Amino acid sequence: MITASSGSHAENNGNEVPSLELTPLIDIVFIVIVFLLITANAPLLKLPVNIPEATENPSADVISDETLVITVASDQNSWALGDDTYEEWGELKTVLLGRIQSKQSVLNSLNISIATDNSATAESLVKVMSFLNEHQLKNVQILMQQPE
């Protein structure tokens, strides 16, 4: 039987009302809030890349007389320009420079297509792209095979 007394709760013999300790809960909530604030403001590292959107019927443009097709082969440092293959980057660079200079009058309408093998190294592709960037050639497309 519970009797009412005018004293404190400690005087009740085993009839204390359990209380919830909120201090650990508040500590955990503050830790979660601090963690979220720190991770939400973390800067993301990104590289801007302009990728064209796919269309219903993807296809390469018709290759005209003013198109240079550069193939990056899967062999170690192997490239092809049209039907000619080059094992050395210096050889390809010299031939490309000659072709670009010979088409200087139509440089704005010169199309360059880069076709890469799936197992070609990224270094070979980057060499070609940086060369084209150095010579400010803007009409460049990378040919890709559509996944089946």
Rank of each mutant, 00 (worst) to 15 (best):
N139Y: 14
N111C: 03
E88K: 15
E53P: 01
I63W: 05
W79L: 02
T39V: 10
D75R: 10
N118P: 12
S59N: 06
E123S: 07
K46D: 03
S74L: 01
N41M: 06
S6W: 10
A42M: 09
V17D: 05
T39G: 07
I51D: 01
G98I: 00
L97Q: 11
Q76R: 13
S64K: 06
K127I: 00
S19R: 14
V106D: 12
N13H: 11
D84N: 08
N118K: 08
D65L: 07
S113K: 10
L143F: 00
N41L: 11
A60N: 09
T116W: 00
E56I: 09
F30R: 15
R99T: 05
N15P: 00
W79G: 03
G14K: 15
P58E: 01
G14R: 12
W89Q: 02
I33R: 09
E53A: 01
D117K: 06
S74T: 02
G82D: 02
L36W: 10
Q141C: 00
V62R: 12
L107G: 11
N50P: 01
T39Q: 06
L68K: 01
L44M: 14
H135P: 05
S6G: 08
D61R: 09
H135E: 08
D117A: 12
S102E: 15
A10M: 08
D65Y: 06
G82A: 06
D61V: 07
S6R: 10
T94Q: 02
E11Y: 05
A73M: 08
D84Q: 14
V32W: 05
L81S: 05
S8P: 13
E53T: 02
